[in-house]
Amino acid sequence: MSLVTIIDYGSSNLRSAANAFERQAALMDDPSEILVTADPEKVRAASRIVLPGVGAFADCAAGLNAVPGMRDVLEERVIAGGTPFLGICVGMQLLATEGREKAITPGLGWIDGAVVHLTPSDPTLKIPHMGWNTLRIQRPHTLLAGIPEGLHAYFVHSYHLQTDRPDLTIATTDYGGPVTAIVGRDNIFGTQFHPEKSQALGLALISNFLTWSP
């Protein structure tokens, strides 16, 4: 049985993510085991890795750095080992070179770019960007297979990952201008929205991730 680890580094609300992954894993012919863990050795043994995250970039980066050995294992398994990786919300933002929320904080540096405050062209638009919005697919991706256009994803964020690499932007959403919704390269995929809260779209994406061979 293959192991999917959801990394616990003190960022709350892991139960929802675990529930959604468990629900979709149960639909598989050979269901993966879903494990929420703070143990880098468990992450090392995993065949898929999920990095969730809510709150501020700086706090999440500090939380991840505070787990001894976790950053090294992520570099080893995701970058050197090619293990399929999914970052969610701030877990996606951490892929960036740096975050600019509260302070300038280095991220994992796997996606060139910075996490910057949303600046919608219409000043009456509220921050956070909170609620259901549709995706504008920029580049087709295996993880979006079978997801019809026009379905909604649930967003809640005040910052987004701005990359100057259009080839790494998989999808955007519109909120007074384009907002990065999905980034990815090779075995790395990150969603600004919450798949575990996005009903049909999110559950389909999670199923695709559970069988993804990048």
Binding site: S12, N13, L14, S16, N19, Y154, V156, E196, K197, L203
Partner: peptide
Amino acid sequence: FMPVTVGGGVRTLEDIRKLLLSGAD
């Protein structure tokens, strides 16, 4: 698999933590 808000009787950081760990958003 949609967002859930819980109100009523939230008085401490521990109350919030327990609700979030239960699955509240």
